[in-house]
C-alpha cells in the first residue's frame, strides 16, 4: 500500500541506533570523556520532551507555546516527592507523568476551544500562570527552586548517582516511550489525530469527536513531558522556575521545527542538534546564541522541512 502515514520500523537502522546508544557510555569511558555521559543523558531527556511536543505540533496540528509548564509540573512533582521522603523512581516518575497529564487535561479542556494563533497564545497564557504560581509559592522554593538532596532510586542495588546507571535508566525510559509513541501514531487514535490536523471540520462531519481526540493527544503529550521533567529533576538534582519560563517552551518548539515537525525522529534530531550545537559553540565562542540563530535562520530559509527533511532531500 502506498501509505505515507504508517511509520515503519526498519530493523537494521533501528538496531544500529539503539546499539550505539547502549555502547555510547562504554566508549566515552574508554576514551576518558565521562563528562559527555551526562550530556548524553540530557540529550535523551530533551529528545523525549521534544518528541512529546512533536506529537502535538507535527502530528496533531496543535501548536502549543506552553509545553514547558508540563515539564515543570513533572520536575516539581519529583522534587517535592523526594523532599517528602519518597525516593523511589518507580513512584516518582509515574507521579511526574500523572502531574503532567492532569495539568494538560485542565489546560487542554479550555485551550482546545480556540484555533490557530489564539491557541498558541492561550497555551502561552496558561504556562505563564503556572510559572508565576511556582515563583510565588514558598513551599516550592520561590525564585530559587528546590535542590534534590539525592536522585530517586531504582532498587536492585543500583546507584542512581553513577552517571552510567542513570544514563541507562533514562535510555530505557526513552526507548520504551518512543516505541509506544510509534505504536500510538500508527493506531486508530494516531490516525485520527493526523486527520484532524489535516481537516478538523471534515473529521467532525464523518463522526469523530474532534475535541475529545485532541484532548486525549494533549494529555498524552503532557504526561510524556511531565515524565521528561521528572527525569530532568533527577539529572540536575535541582528544579527552578526557569524550567517553566516561556523561552523554554520556545526552545522546545525550535527543537521540533529544527528537527522536522511531523517526522517521527524530528524531535529527537532537533534536541540532539540544538544541545550539541550549544555545547560545541560554547567551546569556541561566548556568543553561542549568534551561531545558533544564524543556523536556525538558514534552516528556515533553505531547509523548510527541518533537518529530517533535509536528510531526505540529500539522500534522494
Amino acid at each position: 500500500m502506498a501509505s505515507t502515514l504508517h511509520i515503519g520500523l526498519r530493523p537494521l537502522p533501528t538496531l544500529v541506533l539503539v546499539a550505539s546508544l547502549v555502547l555510547l557510555p562504554v566508549v566515552l569511558t574508554a576514551v576518558d570523556q565521562p563528562f559527555y555521559i551526562v550530556l548524553a543523558s540530557r540529550v535523551l531527556i530533551y529528545a523525549l520532551i521534544a518528541s512529546s511536543l512533536n506529537l502535538l505540533i507535527g502530528y496533531g496540528g496543535m501548536v502549543s507555546l506552553g509545553h514547558a509548564c508540563f515539564v515543570g509540573a513533572g520536575a516539581y512533582t519529583t522534587a517535592v516527592l523526594v523532599h517528602a521522603g519518597i525516593g523511589s523512581a518507580w513512584l516518582a516518575w509515574p507521579a511526574a507523568a500523572l502531574a503532567g497529564a492532569v495539568l494538560a487535561a485542565m489546560i487542554g479542556a479550555v485551550s482546545l476551544r480556540t484555533r490557530g494563533v489564539y491557541f498558541i497564545m492561550i497555551t502561552l497564557a496558561f504556562a505563564q500562570m503556572a510559572y508565576y504560581v511556582v515563583v510565588s509559592l514558598r513551599a516550592l522554593g520561590g525564585d530559587d527552586g528546590l535542590v534534590l538532596p539525592r536522585r530517586t532510586g531504582y532498587g536492585f542495588g543500583l546507584d542512581p548517582h553513577a552517571d552510567m546507571t542513570f544514563y541507562y535508566a533514562v535510555l530505557g525510559v526513552v526507548v520504551l516511550l518512543m516505541a509506544g509513541l510509534r505504536r500510538l501514531l500508527n493506531a486508530p487514535l494516531g490516525r485520527a489525530l493526523q486527520a484532524i490536523r489535516d481537516n478538523d471540520v471534515r473529521m467532525e462531519a464523518i463522526g469523530f469527536p474532534v475535541f475529545r481526540i485532541q484532548l486525549a493527544g494533549f494529555v498524552i503529550a503532557g504526561a510524556t513531558a511531565g515524565l521528561g521533567g521528572g527525569l530532568l529533576a533527577d539529572l540536575n538534582q535541582q528544579v527552578s522556575p526557569s524550567l517553566l519560563h516561556w523561552t523554554q517552551s520556545g526552545t522546545l518548539m525550535v527543537m521540533v521545527i529544527l528537527g522536522g515537525a511531523g517526522r517521527f525522529l524530528g524531535g529527537v534530531l532537533g534536541a540532539a542538534v540544538l544541545l550539541l550545537a550549544q555545547e560545541l559553540f560554547s567551546d569556541v565562542t561566548t556568543h553561542t546564541a549568534l551561531g545558533i540563530g544564524l543556523v536556525l535562520l538558514a534552516v528556515v530559509l533553505f531547509a523548510p522541512a527541518g533537518l529530517a527533511g533535509l536528510w531526505r532531500q540529500v539522500a534522494r
Binding site: H6, R183, L189
Partner: peptide, 19 residues
Amino acid sequence: ALAIQARSRARCAVWRPVA
C-alpha cells in the same frame, strides 16, 4: 477508511496499527 473507522468500535484505539 477514516469514515469507516469513525463508526468502528475501536475508532480511538491506541495499540493495533491501522495499516
